[in-house]
Design a protein around this nucleic acid. Structure first.
Lengths: 340, 340
DNA sequence: TTGTACGCGTTATCAG
DNA sequence: CTGATAACGCGTACAA
């Protein structure tokens, strides 16, 4: 056996015209049952596989969706991918996957690669460095359907799926206050990120409602590097005026905090309480177990894919409206925020 | 702007023949520098993007590699993916990614989807349910280059990348013995998996060398379901004749053990020591911190991609020889295997 | 140095 | 119901 047979060869074998065979395989109504059967059985016998590129060329679609995420080693994004894949496969779509590693330059390269319609549509969450979005606008202008999730681009008029960032951060902060925290810090990646803004707002409003002033040094901007983040957080924890509570806007910063705490004489939750946005399944196994705000990652992925496929299947009736769809997160209280 | 311009249209704009434009863009030696410049600048001006499907159809290659992994929410596989992606992107290759969720039926479907040469090659790690490999043999017979990593198929004559499973398991077991364990259990997924077999051999040989008998009930076969695994392990830990040491052949079973221990009165490492194959970055943050055998995941991914691309680029000189390439793991001792 | 013609494997249109 | 033909966009042999 070697490299597969073409429609034409299959037709020759059957002594039929290629067009007839094509129609038979596509179950066209204008082909008799008898020939359909003959064609199908021969196709199976010879293990005929249609060439996807010829088809894509002809139909101007690839049955492929591109997914761009900031990082792969991240439970949230991995779960979202699982959700997208589940729905995509149900509808015969394939997934091209790209990770930007939180690097805008990488993101731009990837996006530029996708301009040629290699994928029928794009699902993405922008990198933490992304503030100028002209590369994404370009995509949009090329008529490539695009959906954002989690870290969205409000400038681009399409559908976005997020969790209730504001409320969750608000509730998380309120929880810290109820547990007795007086000085609460907020850990963020880039301040330009949509999720940062919303979660920060929730944090500030919760403080305000409790009559607390947000300490400027308590808004900590972190970066991609775990080492640097641990350094930054350690400094904050060792400072004269250190926080006694932390709301971490992403999982990795909570883990960095755990590492930092090990470098101090502090202990969680006695000296410092912490809650974080995170989808880590082993949050409950950490020392101490970590209170989390768990995002509906799988659902977000599924919904993204469902909407996109609806749009791809029936483009007329389904525009990607400029709207934000919110799916709520779930607070799970564990030891890291226990009152003494 | 709408949907991109074709080579023909670009040629018309330039008042040149399509073939000339094609050659200019591909930097052919038979085109004058002057026209090359004109063509390139116009191509940029009109944002010309070659149609990848026309190209794939013509050249019979897609510049795409398919990657099949058993699960996405797994630090090892995520890191391997990162390694593959890094090298693939350097060479202009795209990645189609599929997860089997440890399900052979899913694996078969995916593999069948790839028969049509949608991808130029495949990198994969088989599901834990995979014992019959006829679906993979079929791929191989189709002349689709395929490379295995970690969970390999010895029946298929191609290159495989693994870690030193036998030695690592041997060393891990020996470490447990040195720390005072007398009754060591081995946790595995399916016993048919290549990694299970090798790691089990290492475990058995270490026991033997220490003059210990392998207790039959201490070889625990687990499954995909975390709940069931926790149940199984809990039973083992509560049994009359319980182990005092555990070598876990995969990360998830170690985490399941941590959950199980919480359901008993035992404590790690006093009553039970445990070491596991794992690439979890937060192993050091668990309670207690978890001793691990860390696989060179990134390197494995990079090497797979390098070899595959060499093969795809210069097929004549690079056959995928039937060999196993071993890249060693690293033992990291933490609290979970401390002697009392 | 540039242009013409063809084929890659499909599917849709038009004829019969 | 089936067959012939054209077209999708590109690259290459062959011609000029």
């Amino acid at each position: 056996m070697s490299n597969g047979i073409s429609l034409k060869e299959l037709a020759a074998e059957l002594k039929l015209a290629p067009s007839t065979v094509s129609r038979a395989l596509n179950d066209s109504y204008e082909i008799s049952e008898a020939t359909k059967k003959k064609v199908i059985s021969m196709a199976e016998k010879l293990n005929y596989q249609p060439n996807p590129f010829a088809r894509s060329l002809r139909e101007n679609k690839s049955k492929t969706i591109a997914v761009i995420i900031p990082e792969r080693i991240n439970n949230f994004f991995a779960q979202v991918m699982d959700g997208i894949e589940e729905i995509a496969h149900e509808h015969g779509y394939h997934l091209l996957v790209y990770s930007t590693h939180e690097d805008v330059e990488k993101e731009k390269k990837i996006v530029s690669l996708l301009q040629n319609k290699r994928a029928d549509a794009i699902v993405m969450s922008v990198s933490s460095q992304t503030s100028d979005v002209s590369h994404l606008v370009k995509l949009y202008q090329r008529d490539l359907p695009i959906i954002f999730f989690d870290r969205v681009c409000s400038d681009i008029p399409t559908t976005k799926f997020i969790t209730n960032d504001y409320e969750s951060a608000y509730e998380g902060t309120k929880h810290l206050i109820q547990q007795g925290c007086q000085k609460i810090a907020f850990l963020m990646l880039a301040k330009e990120l949509s999720i940062t803004k919303e979660r920060y707002r929730g944090y500030l409003d919760a403080l305000k409602e409790a009559g607390m002033q947000p300490e400027p040094t308590f808004s900590l901007h972190c970066c991609r590097s775990d080492e640097e983040n641990i350094q930054l957080i350690t400094e904050l924890l060792k400072s004269e005026n250190r926080p006694d509570g932390i709301l971490s806007s992403v999982e990795k910063l909570a883990l960095a905090t755990y590492h930092s705490v090990k470098k101090t004489k502090l202990s969680i939750p006695d000296d410092l309480k912490i809650i974080t946005f995170s989808n880590m399944s082993s949050a409950g196994l950490l020392s101490p177990s970590l209170s989390t705000i768990t995002q509906p990652a799988l659902t977000i992925g599924q919904e993204c894919a469902k909407l996109l496929i609806k749009k791809l299947t029936k483009p007329r009736h389904n525009e990607l409206k400029d709207q934000v769809i919110v799916i709520p997160s779930k607070l799970t209280i564990r030891e890291s925020t226990m009152a003494r």
